[in-house]
Design a protein around this nucleic acid. Structure first.
Length: 284
DNA sequence: CTTTGTGTTGAG
DNA sequence: TCAACACAAAGG
């Protein structure tokens, strides 16, 4: 399938030579008709997506279409359900299908890693199977606790004070009143709310309204989260809620920009064991 | 050796 | 943000 074709109208000279130096493949490769797909010199296809001025390589594929699908998956994970893709249908309603759930349950790094290793479909299928059998007992969530249908409530780029000495995070009133009615918390356990992170770990925060500043805040428990995740001002904290009748809450986070080398700090701070060998956001 | 995927640039 | 291009690094 080495469809090593040249671009239409391109120069025909084919210096097939392999002279030690210099002699390069100066022929133009046929560009792909798919978004996020680039031709490789050997006739295969590479997939890539950009974020924050950086290219994130999604791997190489034999078939152009496979590369395009890889891009689609990444686009969905990086840019949301409405992202422009090659094949997927761009819907805008509630995102509650299996694949969306799967994507929401994995970090960008994990998804990219699966794409590069060509294991995405297997993982997704595995997840789907798991999901289907979740009706039996009461301990099914054991293996993959973070996998369940969820919808995003809101994101917030944490401010310096959110990660500073005040040991609290302000929840924008607009979002608090719409998604986190104070009553929800106070009624249960004295203002305590439980959030589950990607690793399935439960974080309990005190949630209350401060009259002095007329703002909704997460207080007790927040500092621990900031410390363990090594949150820095500008990082994004994302809140989700399960779509089912059980009102489970989820909290995720991601760094503001990848220029601040991630791996080391995250690893050192404990947690974050799910970073893969691949240095997704760094150069060689 | 072959192939990847990064460095880089310039267009949109 | 995006793909084209060249090629050094990575892989076998």
């Amino acid at each position: 399938m080495s469809d090593y074709s040249w671009r239409v109208g391109g120069t025909s000279g084919i210096s097939d030579s392999e002279n030690g130096v210099g002699a390069v493949y100066l022929r133009k490769l046929t560009s792909s008709k798919y978004k996020g797909v680039v031709p490789q010199p050997n006739g295969r296809w590479g997939a890539q997506i950009y974020e924050k001025h950086r290219r994130i390589w999604l791997g190489t594929f034999n078939e152009e279409g496979e590369a395009a699908k890889a891009y689609d998956v990444a686009a969905r994970r990086f840019r949301g359900h409405a992202a422009l893709t090659n094949f997927m249908v761009s819907g805008k309603g509630i995102q509650d299908d299996i694949e969306t759930t799967f994507l929401n349950s994995h970090s960008k790094a994990e998804i990219v890693d699966m794409l590069r290793k060509h294991t995405y479909n297997d993982e997704l299928e595995q997840s789907a199977h798991n999901y289907g059998s979740k009706e039996s007992g009461a301990d099914v969530m054991e293996s993959k606790p973070s996998v369940c249908e969820r919808v995003q409530l809101f994101d917030k780029a944490v401010t310096p004070s959110d990660v500073g000495k005040l040991n609290r995070m302000v929840i924008p009133k607009q979002h608090a009143e719409k998604h986190l009615p104070l009553q929800l918390a106070s009624s249960s356990k004295g203002g305590l709310l439980n959030f589950e992170d990607n690793g399935g770990k439960i974080w309990r925060f005190r949630y209350s309204f401060w009259n002095s500043s007329q703002s909704y805040v997460l207080t007790k428990g927040w500092r621990r989260f900031v410390k363990e995740k090594n949150l820095k001002a500008g990082d994004i904290v994302s809140f989700h809620r399960s779509t089912g009748s059980d009102k489970r809450l989820f909290i995720e986070w991601e760094q503001r920009d990848s220029s601040r080398k991630p791996s080391m700090k995250q690893v050192e701070s404990g947690q974050m064991v799910r970073l893969f060998g691949v240095n997704l956001f760094s150069k060689s």
